[in-house]
Amino acid sequence: MPSTITAVRHGQSESNVAFARAEADGVAVVLTGLDEDVPLTLFGRGQATALGRRLAEGEAPEVVWCSPYLRAVQTWELAAAHLDASPEVRLDARLGDRRMGRLAGMNLAAIRESFPEEADRLLRSEHTYRAPDGESFSDVADRVREVVAAMRAECAGRRVLVVAHDTVVLMFKHVIEGIPLDSVVVFAPVLNASLSVWRGSRPEIFNDDAHLRDITV
């Protein structure tokens, strides 16, 4: 078993900003392009840099498991610039963001316009909802469960850092601590560039963003 598992969400991405702006304006938005290719914003890059400084204050990770999505890779690369160590880095597709299938790139207002029945289903039970050709929380949890099992088998006694996405970090809490899915959702949202640490199955901190208070970009 790893000595610690530290999970971080990527910094603010361009899609995060677009969805937040659309939500504030009460308008529908459908983003184009692949979700995997969405980059960090300038502010998100500042968050990743602050994260690197926070990680440098403690013991450096010995192994990094990173989502292959651009925003996660950028977060790791910017954070890594502040670490003296050069840990082993693995890109693992199982750490990718929750796939939304035919609803990909849509905010809730856009889903209501194009797929009103799906919007109703989503609002009734977000943690059990599976979009057409997409994933539920349980599906993401299955991926995370595989990753945690691999970490326990391959990284015994080592410090592991995970760089991934909000739902993925939430599912780490579900898998490691054994919290039911319908209960773990109360810990959302997982904040951009926040830090969560487990020692064995015991959480030390979760969703901590104290290092992000004085970001300058």
Rank of each mutant, 00 (worst) to 15 (best):
T4S: 15
T6R: 04
H10K: 03
N16T: 12
A22Y: 13
D25F: 10
L31F: 01
D35K: 05
D35F: 10
E36H: 12
E36K: 11
P39T: 02
P39F: 13
F43P: 00
F43M: 00
G44I: 02
A48L: 01
T49R: 15
G52Y: 10
R53Y: 09
E59M: 06
E59I: 07
P61Q: 04
V63G: 03
V64K: 04
V64Q: 06
W65A: 12
P68I: 03
L70N: 03
R71C: 13
Q74Y: 07
T75V: 06
W76T: 03
W76P: 05
W76I: 06
L78S: 03
A80P: 06
A81K: 08
A85N: 02
S86W: 00
P87N: 11
R90S: 06
R90H: 09
L91C: 07
L91D: 01
R98S: 13
R99Y: 01
G105T: 12
G105E: 07
M106K: 06
N107E: 01
L108K: 14
L108D: 04
I111C: 10
I111P: 06
R112N: 07
E113T: 04
E113S: 02
F115D: 15
P116S: 09
E118I: 11
A119Y: 04
R121K: 12
L122I: 08
R130H: 07
A131G: 00
S136F: 03
S136N: 01
S136K: 05
S138D: 03
D139A: 04
D139P: 03
V140Q: 01
A141R: 09
D142V: 11
D142A: 11
R145W: 00
R145I: 08
E146F: 11
V147T: 07
V147H: 02
V148A: 11
A149H: 14
A149N: 00
E154F: 02
E154K: 10
C155K: 00
G157W: 03
R158V: 05
V160F: 01
V160T: 02
A164M: 11
D166W: 05
T167I: 09
T167P: 00
T167L: 05
V175W: 04
I176V: 15
I176W: 04
P180A: 02
L181F: 08
D182P: 13
V185F: 13
V186S: 09
A188Y: 14
A188D: 13
A188K: 09
V190E: 07
A193K: 02
S194I: 05
L195M: 10
S196W: 06
W198A: 09
G200C: 05
S201R: 15
R202H: 06
I205H: 15
F206P: 02
N207T: 07
H211K: 13
L212V: 04
D214C: 09
D214L: 09
V217H: 10
